[in-house]
């Protein structure tokens, strides 16, 4: 009896503890959902009263901030296309071809990738981009992101492709497909779930990044949202909470939409067709 009682209390204790922990994590999210609709929003949590879209109206009058969202989209999509295409082709080759030392290549790339997009390399990157005359261009931001994200993307994808039996492409080639046909007809659809993961990961990375565009871009009409968000700070550096909240919500929408779209369209899963 006492044993059941203690089990009972253990359960209650566990549930309470997890509920408290959950609440701690939920609070900022609830603020994040409520504050944009509250014209008197402060840092404290409050239910909007009255519920209003006034914050958004003000934000939409800020051309610089809206332009920032568009710029973010250009840079993210550009980077994602490069990373997605490059990583798919490179990791497929690394996984399937009998190149000697390919493991070493992958690991060295991985090691340096964190350096390339990290702040430690900002000065040389700035000098290189400057030397190429690409300062203040979208392409500079896209290239630097692609360079920084590609090795990790390749590493993730290569691992994924290594786990896919070669017999898919082999059966296609025996059936009469050229290597290119086998890749596009069979291999690519099969590795698509892995590509999707890499694409989403790269998009989120670029979308949220501040330092690289801040350093490589000059003109305000090219700044992405991560930089433009500072236009909702007063001269003194204090945030205008109402506008910041509304803009933050707009800023996070594309990422949420991307996740929903991907999980609806592809699903983050692998479909089997090989009998193990």
């Amino acid at each position: 009896m006492t044993r059941y009682l203690s089990l009972y209390f253990t359960r209650i204790g566990f549930s309470v503890a997890t509920a408290v922990l959950g609440a701690v994590f939920a609070l900022p999210l609830i603020w994040f959902v409520f504050a944009p609709f509250n014209p008197r929003a402060e840092l404290g949590l409050a239910v909007p009263d009255p519920f209003s879209l006034a914050n958004f109206e003000t934000v939409f009058q800020n051309a610089f901030a809206l332009r920032g969202l568009w710029n973010s989209l250009i840079q993210s999509v550009g980077g994602v296309v490069l990373v997605g295409a490059g990583a798919t082709l490179a990791s497929y080759a690394l996984s399937r071809s009998p190149i000697r030392g390919k493991n070493v290549v992958t690991y060295i790339l991985l090691l340096f990738s964190s350096v390339v997009s990290g702040s430690a390399a900002m000065v040389p990157i700035f000098l290189i981009v400057n030397g190429m005359g690409l300062i203040d261009t979208h392409i500079a931001v896209i290239l630097v992101f692609a360079g920084g994200l590609l090795p990790t993307a390749m590493f993730i994808l290569r691992d994924f492709i290594d786990g896919i039996p070669k017999s898919y492409e082999e059966s296609a080639m025996v059936a009469g497909a050229s290597p290119v046909q086998a890749f596009f007809d069979v291999a690519l659809p099969v590795i698509r779930p892995g590509v999707v993961v890499v694409v989403v990961w790269a998009f989120v990375n670029i979308w949220g990044s501040f330092l690289i565009p801040f350093i490589l871009l000059r003109s305000s009409e090219k700044m992405p949202a991560s930089v433009a968000i500072y236009s909702f700070y007063s001269e003194a550096g204090t945030p205008i909470v109402t506008l910041l909240a509304a803009y933050s919500l707009l800023y996070s929408l594309p990422v949420i939409v991307l996740y929903l779209f991907v999980s609806w369209k592809f699903g983050f899963r692998f479909f089997g067709g090989i009998k193990a």
């Binding site: 059966s171 069979v186 659809p189």
Partner: peptide, 26 residues
């Protein structure tokens, strides 16, 4: 040549008709 693989290697994203007809498609 034609080959039947131990793991069958059916293409998971194609239905049976497309799987069987793939050699004719290429």
């Amino acid at each position: 040549i034609s080959m039947v693989f131990q793991d069958y290697a059916l293409y998971p994203h194609m239905n049976l008709a497309d799987n069987i007809a793939y050699p004719l498609k290429v």
